[in-house]
Write a protein that binds this DNA or RNA. Structure first.
Lengths: 254, 254
DNA sequence: CGGTGAATTGAAGACGCTCAATACACGTGG
DNA sequence: CCACGTGTATTGAGCGTCTTCAATTCACCG
């Protein structure tokens, strides 16, 4: 299939090449991502330090646990999972990340990556060299403040997962997982109730501290209860309120 | 009871009162805490913004979930627990903090505290007004960098707890917990193998996603296996290597 | 159309939970 | 000093949830 793309006129063509190569202003994620709240002047200063866009093919590593840390990554497009490997060689997935989210913040303290990041589909990231970003912090307080908010948000996200793993039953965990995914898609302008899972049942189970079989059974049960419509990795939430109530613990999961 | 305190001589007396009230240089935690790596000049600039020291009695709240966020807290003395409350009213403890550690970083993103902090014993903290700290960041890059390291460390700490809750068995979790506590005491110049638990069995269980009964049984088992000597909250680790091996999953817990 | 990897479903078992009884530590008052 | 009460911890018995193991089924692709 071919599509004819309208050729931009005069003024647009005068945009310098480097700005085309990596421009936060032109990126649909700039209201969620690091440049949030910056004026166009500051935004182009941020553009100036962003090294390049990097494509990561499905199942490709963005970085590996133990790699030396030099850059943060902002996801432009696609989905990732981050995971740790324990001594026995089994992985524990610590998060699923989507466009607009920042990867690599866990590596700042030890200057080595504490987990690995792998693309769940063909994806694209912006490389942000950390020392150059630190230089900018001194000049753009708004940027610094928002960076702190993003790190803080990562901390609260992980605390919520601890709550989930520490005292929710299986059904509650899975309900919370689906509601969370939906909310994040909604923040990106997509449907909160209808989306495609980018990860396998096994990866979901690993993340939620459950087995693949449990996830499969839960999907079947939710389907039977009229909560979901499921077809392979396609999810449609039919009763978001009840799912939220289950996640909150207000409603039991029978 | 009265105690006669030796009166300091000449030069010491010239130290201005504010410096006496809150001086990082004089604090035994300054090599672990926020001022790590600062020269004495920068350290006193940090001193200048630290509001006051605040005492928190045992079981007292330092802050509550939902409170508006204005300041970070550095623990000078004592121990805290942080926890979330879910809709059903039950708590999930997300961490135990000790001297030299920073509290409140989770609140930056929403400008409200995401969890509550309660003192496990009579404790003392330094109040660090966050906006004034942000002002300092522009002037002291070393301070900023170390602050990022501390936030990043909090992220990796929580990732390790996710690993623990997500795919360790009960014995492994508890072994990891004890080893972690010992390591943190060692970093503060105390024994890694002999210390007092500041939290109840119930709190340990809550943190590890287990019940109080399970913790009690594990203590008995570890005692029987010659791993520990236990007397109330007094712990002596008799075989640290084996405990570490259990935490790593190298050695089974029978 | 057959092969491969993923997902579903069922049956049995284990791990940790719940419930309950008892023991212990510690503080208070007789 | 002991009696008593309260909160915490220990220990046991039975049960439930989720796991493990195994057998199909399904989707996708050469």
């Amino acid at each position: 299939m071919t599509v004819s793309i309208p050729v931009p006129k005069a003024d647009v063509l005068t945009v310098p090449i480097p700005a085309l190569r990596a421009s936060c202003a032109a990126c649909s994620m700039h209201q969620l991502c690091l440049p949030m709240g910056l004026d166009s002047n500051d935004m182009s200063r941020l553009d100036a330090i962003i090294g390049r866009r990097r494509k990561v093919a499905r199942d490709g590593h963005l970085y590996r646990m133990g790699d030396p840390f030099t850059t943060l990554y902002a996801i432009r497009l696609g989905h990732f999972k981050t995971f740790q490997i324990n001594v026995g060689g089994e992985q524990q997935i610590t998060g699923f990340q989507m466009a607009g989210e920042l990867l690599g913040m866990d590596a700042i303290s030890a200057e080595r990556h504490h987990c690995s990041a792998v693309a769940l589909e063909d994806s694209e990231v912006c490389e942000i060299p950390f020392t150059r970003l630190e230089d900018l912090f001194g000049q753009i307080p708004t940027l610094l403040h928002h960076f702190h908010r993003m790190m803080s948000q990562e901390i609260t996200r992980e605390q919520s997962v601890m709550l989930l793993l520490g005292n929710m039953r299986a059904g509650q965990r899975f309900a919370a997982f689906l509601v969370n995914l939906g909310a994040r898609y909604a923040a990106r302008g997509y449907s909160a109730s209808s989306f495609q899972l980018r990860m396998s049942r096994e990866e979901i189970g690993n993340y939620l501290g459950l087995t693949i079989e449990s996830i499969s059974r839960l999907l079947s049960r939710f389907k039977k209860q009229g909560l979901l419509r499921v077809s392979n990795r396609e999810i449609e939430i039919l009763d978001l309120d009840r799912l939220k109530a289950m996640a909150a613990g207000t409603e039991t999961c029978d």
